[in-house]
Design a protein around this nucleic acid. Structure first.
Length: 295
DNA sequence: CCCCAGGGCCATA
DNA sequence: TATGGCCATGGG
């Protein structure tokens, strides 16, 4: 079993990461203990299980299962850097936020919070489709049904650790298969269609990443049935780490801005755009901090 | 009973 | 191009 130590960035609090991962929702793709998170990821045709803790000012990543592939240290390190967005310099964000009447308070209150990413585009888009227009607890319930029915898992100390289902598996499903998991007909259709696009290679995550321009990425993603502005921006933010993505129309964002500005009603689109004035290049982080403030 | 949930598509005019 | 209905379920 391999172990990796990652020196933590100056601006980072693992406790904030754990808090966000916990947030009151049961997520089926990681397991939380008091000061640790355990996660399974797919590596080629195997599943790697590891645990992340904080020790002596470093993130400690410990492999928990046997895996026949080489370079486990590098794979775990690379995953952690992406998952917790550890390579980004947040100081410019905090410098800009200081001058914002509302976000200045958020960066003080939640100092060290970093984006929690969804490195896999297929998973991110499926999660968005599931979460459209329903409350988050029900969305998690639906995701758990999908993952535990069609995802692979490894066992460790009697507990199952799942990875998200492969596109090729979901591509073979019928609409009724997913309706049995409480998907609406529409969401089942979007999900299967999306899985086929990935399985057949018509969508390639690296190709989209290489567009290297948020507007182009959004416009490319919006070509997919079931992917609109909210979903495309969510994926731009959570998968590609595009700093200027904004989940326009997002219920959480609207309610967050409403509460933070002590307004009676939800902001209009113009008011949302105004909210981000002075935070250019850090819109995605701002959205994430607003979400953090919600509960 | 109502309305709203970390939306998006489609029909209609 | 703009507007409204629809989707499925759960919580307040």
């Amino acid at each position: 079993m391999k172990t990796v130590r990652l020196l933590k960035p100056d601006i980072f609090r693992f406790e904030e990461t754990l808090w966000f991962l916990d947030r009151g929702f049961d997520d089926c793709l990681y397991t939380l203990k008091s000061h640790a998170v355990t996660k399974a990821i797919r590596v080629q045709n195997e599943i790697l299980l590891f645990e992340v803790t904080m020790k002596d000012n470093a993130l400690l990543v410990q492999q928990l299962n046997t895996c026949s592939l080489p370079h486990m240290e590098q794979i775990m390190q690379q995953y952690l850097l992406e998952w917790f967005d550890l390579e980004r310099d947040l100081q410019p964000f905090y410098d800009k936020a200081k001058n914002h009447r509302i976000v200045s308070n958020l960066v003080n209150q939640f100092a060290g919070l970093r984006l929690i990413m969804i490195p896999d585009l297929f998973e991110a888009l499926c999660w968005c489709i599931i979460g459209q227009q329903i409350n988050l607890s029900f969305a998690h319930k639906m995701k758990t049904g999908l993952v535990t029915t069609y995802g692979e898992h490894v066992e460790h100390n009697g507990q199952k650790h799942f990875v998200f289902p492969k596109p090729s598996v979901l591509a073979e499903l019928s609409i009724d298969d997913l309706k049995a998991l409480q998907f609406s007909r529409q969401k089942a259709d979007y999900t299967i269609n999306l899985a086929r696009l990935f399985a057949e290679g018509n969508i390639n995550q690296n190709q989209i990443r290489d567009l290297n321009d948020t507007a182009k990425i959004i416009s490319e993603l919006c070509k997919i049935r079931g992917v609109g502005e909210w979903t495309a921006n969510y994926a731009a933010m959570k998968t590609f780490g595009r700093r200027d993505a904004i989940t326009f129309g997002d219920a959480g964002l609207l309610n967050g801005i409403k509460t933070l500005s002590q307004s009676k009603q939800k902001p209009t689109r113009q008011e949302v755009e105004n909210f981000f004035t002075g935070l250019e290049g850090w819109e995605a982080y701002t959205v994430f901090y607003v979400w953090r403030s919600l509960s």
